[in-house]
Simulated scan of single mutants.
Amino acid sequence: MKKSVAAGTALVAVAVLSAGSAQASEKISLRLGGYSKWWVVGAWESDSYQGATQTDENSVDVKGDNEIYFQGSTTLDNGLQIGIDIQLEGGGHSVSNSRAANAGADMIDESYVWLAGGFGKLELGSKNNGAYQLHVTAPDAAGNWNEEGLMADALAIPTHISGISPLQHGWDTTAILTDNDSEGVTYFTPSLYGLTLAATYKPSSSEDNRGTVNLSTGATAGAVTGEFYALGGLYAETFGDVGVKLSAGWASYDFNVPSSTSADSGDDHVFEYSLGGQLSYAGFTFGSSYRRVLADRGNLQATADLDLNAQAWDLGLQYAFDRYAVSMAYYRSEASGSDATESRDVIEFYLLSGKYALGPGVDLLASIGHANYTSEDHQLAEENDGWTVMSGLSLTF
């Protein structure tokens, strides 16, 4: 750890010192950017789930997702580029059950500075790890897939599955998202023949130093602890009319797993890896990705009652033409959960989406999806399934 911190500090120092003689460059001026998405959502879910949770869900709702970016950069006389990026949550949908404990009142989503030059790019601050940033997933025309999508974040069809595995950290995604915008340093190599590599170090994977991240509302809650390391790679190249994207990611950290007996409590060392790929030709894009969570249970007794191992994958096809795009995608995750049962928590999504560009930065969106949540212990209050129809407007600026 000391070596990695020293190396990162040295790189920052070299970049800053090399910029010392550059006094004629312009001062950084911030500019506004961001996006605003608003959806009208129709949802029809299981009567048994509503009965078990004693709820009477509305069949129509309005959900939004908004962020404002404050960005700026300058190029020094020696060619070194320096920039800043601060992202402000702009309101919209309420958080889902799975991410409520972590999202809270965190109004600044990401905040970091970056340095770029012939050496590559260095990011320092609050941002997702490099493996996440380079990850490739199944396509979705409406942007309603993976992190913070209305389907993936259980905002259209809700669930009360108390996720224990880091894969159920709050977003059902194949990207390694366990660190979730916590503070750290990420280095990206220059792209060479379409290949870009990334390395991330974070002293703590708890976002904004608010202590450990609680991943469950139950008595057997777990938490990510200690240092977080990640490596990632992306190969993106075009061969004639064929586009190819391939990604791979890896992460390492400790995860505290309390048990029903104090003798069983301890830290699991967890490894995650992800794979993804897209192939595009003549307006068609086919993509798929995979994520695996592997826990080393050497620090726990054989009677420990939680198992962190989990996996997820997706598959999708998109066709874009003129101002239109349509896509179909499927996602499935499986988490082991308790050792007391051989079943698994299973989450499945089916999604048909479309987009029409009304103008620059203005898109009309639509999605039809089905969600199915199966609890390993088959508790009616945790299992749900249903259909959703959504139509929305997306503005980027």
Results as ranks from 00 to 15, higher is better:
residue 229 Y to L: 12
residue 196 T to L: 04
residue 150 L to P: 08
residue 130 G to N: 08
residue 173 T to Y: 04
residue 216 S to W: 05
residue 203 P to Q: 15
residue 228 F to C: 01
residue 158 P to H: 13
residue 196 T to D: 05
residue 165 S to F: 03
residue 138 A to F: 01
residue 132 Y to F: 12
residue 200 T to S: 14
residue 208 D to S: 09
residue 188 F to K: 00
residue 197 L to R: 11
residue 199 A to E: 13
residue 197 L to T: 10
residue 153 D to I: 12
residue 141 A to F: 14
residue 165 S to G: 08
residue 218 G to C: 09
residue 204 S to G: 06
residue 167 L to K: 03
residue 158 P to A: 07
residue 164 I to W: 01
residue 176 I to P: 08
residue 183 E to Q: 07
residue 180 N to M: 07
residue 230 A to E: 07
residue 129 N to Y: 04
residue 229 Y to T: 08
residue 219 A to I: 08
residue 129 N to A: 14
residue 171 W to R: 11
residue 226 G to T: 05
residue 188 F to Q: 07
residue 177 L to D: 15
residue 232 G to R: 00
residue 223 A to H: 03
residue 186 T to S: 09
residue 229 Y to C: 10
residue 170 G to Y: 03
residue 134 L to A: 08
residue 191 S to V: 08
residue 214 N to Y: 03
residue 224 V to Q: 11
residue 217 T to Y: 12
residue 176 I to Q: 06
residue 207 E to Y: 03
residue 168 Q to T: 09
residue 140 D to L: 14
residue 211 G to A: 10
residue 225 T to E: 15
residue 215 L to P: 00
residue 137 T to V: 10
residue 179 D to Q: 10
residue 175 A to R: 04
residue 146 N to T: 04
residue 157 I to L: 08
residue 231 L to W: 03
residue 159 T to E: 05
residue 144 N to R: 02
residue 136 V to D: 02
residue 202 K to I: 01
residue 138 A to M: 03
residue 228 F to G: 00
residue 131 A to P: 00
residue 201 Y to F: 14
residue 145 W to A: 14
residue 214 N to R: 13
residue 153 D to F: 12
residue 155 L to F: 05
residue 228 F to H: 07
residue 228 F to E: 06
residue 153 D to Q: 09
residue 196 T to V: 08
residue 194 G to I: 04
residue 230 A to P: 00
residue 228 F to S: 01
residue 199 A to G: 14
residue 175 A to K: 08
residue 140 D to C: 14
residue 153 D to G: 12
residue 183 E to T: 08
residue 149 G to L: 09
residue 137 T to I: 07
residue 210 R to M: 08
residue 139 P to K: 15
residue 224 V to Y: 06
residue 224 V to E: 03
residue 197 L to K: 13
residue 140 D to T: 13
residue 145 W to D: 08
residue 221 A to R: 12
residue 135 H to Y: 11
residue 185 V to C: 01
